[in-house]
Design a binder for these strands. Structure first.
Lengths: 185, 185
DNA sequence: TTGTAATTTCAACACGGTGTCGATTAACAT
DNA sequence: ATGTTAATCGACACCGTGTTGAAATTACAA
C-alpha cells in the first residue's frame, strides 16, 4: 500500500532539501554534517532520521526531483523541432536555472548525479541522433559521445556561460554527427 | 633545503599507501577511517599524523606516484611509433596493471585522479593529435575528446577488457580524428 | 660499539558528530 | 472532540579525530 506523504512531511523534507542546497553553495558536500543541516533547516536532529538516513540520501532525493522536472520539461518542448533545437532547449533550461545546476554539477558529489541526470535528459535527444551501426563498438561510441557532451556542458557552466546556448548546441550536435561514419569501416 | 626522506619514513609511507589500496578494494574510499588504515598498516595512529593529514592526502600521494610512473613509461615507448601505437601502448599499460587502475578509476574518489592522470598521460599523445583550429571552440572540443576517451577507457576497464587494446586504441583514434573537420566551417 | 638524533610508540585527553531511546508536545484530519 | 501522525526534547553510549608529552625503539655515523 503506497501511502502518499502528508503535506507536513513534504514540508519537512523540503526544508531539509533547501537547507542542503544552501549549504552546498557554501562548502563541500562531504563536510556538511547532519547536525549542521538540521540547524539550518531549523529542525530537530531526531526529525531528520525520521525521513533520511544521511546527507547523501537527501541529495539523491533532490536529484530525483530535478531530474524528473527536467525530463518533464524536455517532453513538452515539442516534437516538431530539430535535434539542435532540442539540445539548445536543454542547454537553455540549464542556464535558466544556473545557480541550482552549478551547485549540483560542481559539488564534488556530482559523479552519480551527472550520469543519472544526463542519461535521462538525453534520452529525449538520443532518439533523434543517428544510429551507430557497429554493435561491438556502439556502447563505447555512445559512452564517448555522452561523456564528451556532458563535459562540454560542465565546462560551459564553469565558464559562466561564455557562449550562447545555440552555439554550444550546434557544436555538440556537429561533434556527435561527425562520428557517424566511424562504424562503417 | 629539500631534505630527502629517510628509508624508514619511506617504508612507513609505503605501508600506509599499500594498506589504503588494499582497503579501497574492499570498501568505498569515504568510509575508510584513519584508525582502520593504521590497523591495516600495523602502525600507530600517531605515526599517521606525522606524515599525512587525512586519507585523501595518502591517496593523492599514491596518485602522484602512479602518474609519474606512467608518464615515464610513456616517454620510453619510443618516438618512431604511430599515434595509434602510442594509444595502444598506453592502454596495454593500464591493462597490465588492471587491479591497480581498476581500484583507482572506480573508487568513487576517482574524479580528481582521472582528470589529473589523463591530463598527464595523454599529454604525450596529444602532441600527435591534429590541431583543432577554432580558437573559440577549441577548449570545448578538447574537453569533449578528452572526456569521451577517458570514459571509453573506464568502460573498457569495467567490462574486464572485452576488446583487445589495439581495437580500443583504433576506435579512440578514429573518434578523435573524425572531429578534425568540425572547426573548419 | 656506543652515542645521538630521528622516528615510532603509547596512554590519555577533550572534542564533536552519530544514531537511537522513551516520553512529551504539537499538528492535522475526520 | 478525538485519535492518529509527526515533530520535539533531553539523554545516552559510541566512535573517530586530532593533539599532547614522555618513553621506547630504531637507524646510522663516529
Amino acid at each position: 500500500m503506497e501511502q502518499k506523504e502528508s503535506r507536513r512531511v513534504q514540508m519537512t523534507k523540503l526544508l531539509l532539501k533547501t537547507a542542503l542546497i544552501e549549504l552546498m553553495q557554501e562548502k563541500p558536500f562531504r563536510q556538511i554534517t547532519i547536525k549542521e543541516l538540521c540547524e539550518r533547516a531549523d529542525l530537530n536532529r531526531t526529525t531528520f532520521y525520521l525521513h533520511y538516513a544521511d546527507q547523501t540520501d537527501v541529495l539523491r532525493d533532490i536529484e530525483r526531483e530535478i531530474r524528473d522536472k527536467t525530463v518533464d520539461y524536455m517532453k513538452n518542448v515539442g516534437t516538431d523541432i530539430s535535434t539542435i533545437g532540442l539540445i539548445e532547449a536543454f542547454l537553455q533550461y540549464i542556464k535558466d536555472n544556473a545557480k541550482l545546476f552549478r551547485t549540483l554539477f560542481l559539488s564534488g558529489e556530482a559523479e552519480g548525479f551527472t550520469q543519472n541526470f544526463m542519461g535521462y535528459a538525453l534520452a529525449e535527444i538520443k532518439e533523434n541522433l543517428p544510429y551507430y551501426g557497429d554493435e561491438l563498438h556502439e556502447k563505447y561510441i555512445l559512452t564517448f559521445l555522452m561523456n564528451g557532451s556532458t563535459h562540454i556542458l560542465i565546462e560551459w557552466i564553469e565558464s559562466g556561460f561564455d557562449l550562447p546556448a545555440s552555439e554550444v548546441a550546434t557544436l555538440i550536435y556537429k561533434l556527435c554527427d561527425s562520428v557517424r561514419d566511424i562504424a562503417k569501416e
